[in-house]
């Protein structure tokens, strides 16, 4: 069984984010890393392929400037190879354009039985890409999975809901988005890190995939500073701090 994982390479979130003059997320400068949300998908894919006994884990990613550092992290975890789409024309791409690229990249990767993605990315968090990719591929989308099982050509997930979870099933091939914390992502071994350096990364452009770039149908009109909330009083607890809380709640008539 072959599993394709969508992995986003994002600027290190430990470095505070900035917008460029044309209101895009600044992506140069900070070193790109594998979005932590996607490390769960990579781990899940490795486990599923391992369980199936054959097949490989293939990565697809769209990132500027031929960025591979995040891909190398995932390759070091054990993925076999990657398709990277990098193209200046994709700067400022919206979620749908990204999805068109990823859907074509999945086809280029070849032979996928399952596509995994995270429920939302850490930097953009549009939160629509997995289901958009599924619709473009014409496949079922099973979203917000907190457990994934594959058997007899079917995928069954526990899908997070407002009230608890639903058990949802579909035949393969399908797209599944996984929530954070579903599995414990492994740390790459030294051997893995060395091996990752020579694993194949197939780098292509949007036009190689036949995806049109250009107008996205949306435009940023204003960026403003959010009003800041003022801090109130802050006291050191000397054993009577709870009394201040009681008084505060009484003032509000909560108690």
């Amino acid at each position: 069984m072959n599993v394709v994982v969508c992995v986003k390479q994002i600027p290190d979130p430990a470095v505070p984010g900035e917008l460029t003059s044309d209101h895009r997320l600044k992506r140069d400068g900070a070193k790109a890393i594998l979005d932590e949300s996607d490390s769960y998908g990579v781990e899940m894919a490795l486990q599923l392929v391992d369980k199936a006994g054959s097949g490989e884990v293939i990565l697809v990613s769209m990132a500027p400037n031929g960025e591979v550092s995040g891909l190398r992290q995932a390759l070091a975890m054990g993925a076999a190879r990657a398709v990277l789409v990098s193209d200046d024309a994709l700067a400022g791409a919206d979620a749908l354009t990204t999805s068109k690229i990823l859907a074509k990249a999945v086809e280029r990767a070849g032979g996928a039985d399952l596509v995994l993605a995270a429920t939302e990315s850490s930097d953009g968090y549009t939160g629509t890409v997995p289901a958009q990719v599924a619709e473009l591929l014409g496949w079922p989308s099973l979203t917000f999975a907190k457990q994934v099982d594959i058997a007899d050509g079917k995928v069954t997930i526990q899908r997070q809901t407002e009230a608890g979870y639903d058990v949802v099933e579909a035949s393969l091939p399908a797209v599944v988005s996984v929530t954070a914390g579903v599995v414990e992502p492994r740390y790459p071994s030294f051997k893995g890190i060395m091996a990752a350096k020579s694993k194949p990364v197939d780098q292509v452009t949007a036009s190689d995939l036949g995806v049109a770039t250009g107008a996205t149908g949306q435009e940023i009109t204003a960026v403003t500073q959010a009003p800041e909330r003022q801090a109130g009083e802050k006291i050191e607890d000397d054993g009577t701090g709870f009394e201040r809380v009681v008084a505060f709640l009484e003032d509000l008539k909560v108690i």
């Binding site: 919206d94 749908l96 968090y125 939160g127 629509t128 289901a131 619709e135 989308s141 899908r159 149908g217």
Partner: peptide, 22 residues
């Protein structure tokens, strides 16, 4: 929401329209 996100995403791809979320 979970279902709202599924709906807007799949519709966006069907109609070839961008989305604004959050």
């Amino acid at each position: 929401t979970y279902d709202g996100r599924d709906a807007i995403a799949r519709l966006s791809a069907r109609l070839d329209r961008t989305v604004l979320t959050n």
